[in-house]
Design a protein around this nucleic acid. Structure first.
Length: 438
RNA sequence: GGCCCCGUCGUCUAGAGGCCCAGGACACAGCCCUUUCAAGGCUGCGACACGGGUUCGAAUCCCGUCGGGGUCACCA
């Protein structure tokens, strides 16, 4: 049975690219009749894991990517937080040590850095001298007598190649000699990401590792541990990045000012901001940001439209079909059809999906969807009187095409939207605009 | 810089040697429909990074170049 996972670290927000990674994992698991798990990669002990995790769980729920095992639902292969598994990781480290695949290293960070710098200066590849390597108790005792403390490093091969198959990239190979003796356990005994990752994937019986391309070059060291620990290798699929509008750079939540120079991105942002302002929402870049999924929920997008758009970022079914229901996505998705090149985020196209999807929403549902927005904006009293509901329904009914097309593709549309959502008078006109985007 | 990955219209993509002087979608322009604005319909603009091969034939295979990205932590 296929088991996939999405393993975010608790950063306090859910990146749109992360949603896509989660989506692909979810689709694959659902299609195979397998399980989709959520695991929290918090080996780097943080104080407010709970607080930093909440937005991520919330975002996944909003887009409907439910997990079968993980936080809140738990499961038979927990815990699903890496911070709770250090003993288990140390056990794996011991195994690697026992098998001679890892060693105690007594170099200080300064000494390691000095070697690295020297290699840099001489323009050669850095290879650790293993000068402070200790593999036997006497060696350890000697270094410890000097007052040194040890980390555990992998003793990586220095010849040969690491080869593996990737569902998206085909056969990939790396020279072992390029790999470093990576640290897997810190001086304080806590373990690092790669080790934890490998152990968890094994403990959780993950069969397919579907993750972003940035992990492609991390794969050899993980495979080294997987093989060393006697685990079986999962299948891999390294997804291309979601790139910035109009470029190949990885989309980043910190570059909003730069993205705002892109007209389409600016339209997307301004439209959202005008709605947020009208409702008195906080719009600092940390929370209100089109690179973060929350943005779309706050502004009133349809989760299905966002998901449908994201599905097409790096994946296509054929040369015609672009709209899919959840079930169709599940039935039709294949890793083999995922593109290799990075896909840049196109705000206009996202908007087109939202617009089209909105037109299909029945009036009563639209009323229900936009009511909370009108209320937050102070245009409708909190328990909405029936008279207002009726009137709202009639407004939306009467203006259906218009309101659904207020999100249409014309350049002026967003501007008009903004104007109307910002307008204070609860006239039919102004109140029917917002629904169109809610 | 080393290594790895990638390279079809502005953007997302279809294309697995002849069906392609390259198809669809978004955006853009124009026309039709329409009391208006939308929606819808139609038309247009617009790409195989470059150079060599292989082949009767290449976007598709091979080599090189160029370009872009990723990665090289006691981060994840």
């Amino acid at each position: 049975m296929a088991r996939t996972r999405f393993a975010p670290s608790p950063t306090g927000y859910l990146h749109i690219g992360g949603v896509r990674t989660a989506l692909f994992n979810w689709l694959f698991a659902r299609q195979q009749g397998g399980k989709f798990l959520l695991r929290i990669d918090d080996t780097d002990a943080q104080r407010n894991v709970e607080e930093a995790l909440a937005p991520i769980l919330h975002g996944l729920k909003w887009v409907g990517l439910t997990w079968d095992e993980g936080p809140e639902v738990d499961g038979p292969h927990g815990p699903y937080y890496q911070s709770q598994k250090n003993a288990r990781y140390q056990e794996a480290v011991r195994t690697l040590l026992d098998r001679g695949l890892a060693y105690w290293d007594y170099a200080t960070p300064e000494e390691t850095k000095a070697e690295r710098d020297a290699a840099d200066r001489e323009k050669r590849q850095f290879v650790y001298s293993r000068r402070w390597m200790a593999k036997t108790p006497p060696e350890r005792a000697r270094f410890e007598a000097e007052g040194r403390q040890a980390v555990v490093r992998l003793e990586m091969p220095r010849t040969g190649k690491c080869e593996f198959r990737d569902h998206i990239r085909g056969d990939v190979s790396f020279d072992w000699a390029r790999e470093q003796d990576h640290v897997i356990q810190r001086v304080d005994g806590t373990c690092l990401y790669h080790l934890a990752n490998v152990v968890d994937d094994f403990d959780m019986k993950i069969t397919h590792v579907i993750r972003a391309e940035e992990h492609l070059s991390n794969t050899p060291r993980q495979i080294f541990m997987i093989d060393g620990l006697g685990y079986s290798r999962p299948e891999y699929a390294h997804l291309p990045f979601v790139a910035e509008p109009g470029s190949q750079n990885k989309l980043s939540k910190r570059k909003i000012p730069q993205y705002l120079k892109n007209p389409a991105f600016k339209r997307l942002y301004d439209h959202g901001k005008s709605i947020a302002d009208r409702m008195g929402l906080q719009t600092s870049a940390d929370t209100f940001n089109p690179v973060i999924v929350d943005f779309y929920e706050q502004v009133g997008y349809l989760a299905d439209a966002v998901v449908n758009y994201l599905l097409l970022l790096g994946w296509a079914y054929d040369d015609r079909r672009e709209e899919f229901t959840r079930q169709e996505m599940i039935d039709l998705f294949t890793l083999e059809r995922v593109n290799k090149a990075p896909a840049s985020f196109d705000p206009d196209k996202l908007w087109a999906f939202q617009d089209r999807a909105m037109r299909k929403v029945p009036v009563p549902e639209k009323v229900a969807k936009c009511l909370p927005f009108l209320q937050r904006a102070g245009l409708v009293p909190e328990p909405a009187p029936d008279a207002i509901r009726d009137r709202l329904a009639r407004i939306i009914e009467a203006a259906r095409d218009r309101s659904s097309s207020s999100g249409c593709a014309s350049r002026r549309r967003p501007a008009r939207c903004c104007r109307s959502s910002a307008s204070a008078s609860p006239t039919p006109r102004s109140s029917m605009r917002r629904p169109s985007t809610s």
